[in-house]
Design a binder for these strands. Structure first.
Lengths: 209, 209
DNA sequence: GGCAAAATACCCCATTTGCCTGATACCCTT
DNA sequence: AAGGGTATCAGGCAAATGGGGTATTTTGCC
């Protein structure tokens, strides 16, 4: 496939895991474990100054955790692909990692063959994820059960979010501006906000819009 | 692995592809192609009334496209896993499919072995995606290059989205309300909107907030 | 049929917003 | 030195918003 080795770095605080991963990678043709670091802080400078293709990144580490490490490195080295390699499978870890710039997310029980495949895959423009992680990511797009399900009002909110004012929304929905106002008032109460701005933010977060 | 066959349905308007897929699935132990349909409309009733585990769904089909078909079936049959199987790889198709309720997204050049593996994977709670699709999904979480990168203003927008008014934002950022006003005006221009509501929606969509 | 909830509509009024004009200053690049 | 971009601050003004009411009609449900 690729003519040159894929240069890999490992950031992982557990000595044994770090060594094992390095052995797996170095022991496979086409892969070269160029660096290993025992926490995020130690990885920052070397990874900024040296080129690697893929970084395997643990999350829970002393001094600087993997998510923050990615957050700081990715903007500076956008061509580097970061794969989180962690036991954490909670939404917070997953989505913070992805938002920080990770291009892959594997659980630590990933078998060596799949790990190596994932490294190749991310380098080829993919986004390798453990099956359960991928499902979580996909599910994050699925609509939530509409909280308390307000009736006509939700349409109003959608239109407001598009920049319309009471009058325009009223025309669109064939209602009086007064009515729209009443609806919006009710929506504010249900969403526990008191401004259009906050309502729209909450509405989007809760997938009502 | 599983004691019983995985029951699969195929919704695909191209006769040849449909037959080929059916042959692949029926020819593999552990899989059973229970139904095939030539468009979304034809699939609706049978899929509501009969149980299948996984549906392979094309997108572009006459009468009822695959995305709308999933949108209508998934809420009624949440336990069914839908895998889009299409040549389309544009963002609109990808994200509309996922939002409609698809749990997987494969391109039509997926080799048979990988297709079968994906069916098993989705049934096991995964979310099989072609590599390039997965990357798109992941990238959708990444912050956009700040359009024209407004400097201080973006902070203002974030605070406005939390329901603050000019005065509160000004206090928070140690600025004059006038300054905040100016910033917001500039942001509106850059986002091509003219109301706070639309700005927040666009800001969230573009991941500036 | 009857009741409760939602939807519809209207009023007043203080506050806020969006837009206009203008200004000063700083940091770039040319 | 000149120009462009950004950040800062200011006053004025028409329009929109948010909050407090009240009241009628429609709807869904028992």
């Amino acid at each position: 496939m690729q003519l040159e080795n894929i240069h890999v770095a490992i950031v992982e605080d557990d000595h044994e895991i770090r060594q094992t991963l390095a052995l797996i990678i170095d022991g496979t043709p086409g892969f070269w474990c160029k660096h290993t670091f025992e926490n995020g802080q130690a990885a920052l400078k070397p990874l900024l100054e040296n080129h690697v293709d893929v970084v395997l990144m643990d999350i829970e580490m002393p001094q600087l955790n993997g998510i923050d490490c990615v957050r700081r490195l990715k903007p500076e080295k956008p061509q580097v692909d970061f794969i989180m390699l962690t036991i954490r499978h909670d939404d917070e870890a997953i989505f913070q990692s992805i938002c920080a710039g990770a291009s892959g997310y594997l659980l630590k029980d990933t078998p060596p063959a799949e790990l190596l495949q994932s490294i190749k895959e991310v380098k080829a423009g993919g986004a390798p994820m453990s099956a359960s992680i991928a499902r979580r990511v996909i599910q994050s797009f699925h609509p939530i059960e509409k909280i308390a399900a307000f009736g006509t009002g939700d349409r109003s909110l959608t239109l407001l979010a598009q920049g319309m004012n009471y009058r325009s929304v009223a025309e669109q929905l064939f209602l009086s501006p007064h009515t729209v106002k009443t609806h919006i008032k009710n929506i504010y109460e249900k969403l526990q906000v008191n401004s259009r701005a906050a309502a729209i933010k909450k509405g989007i977060e809760d997938r009502l819009i």
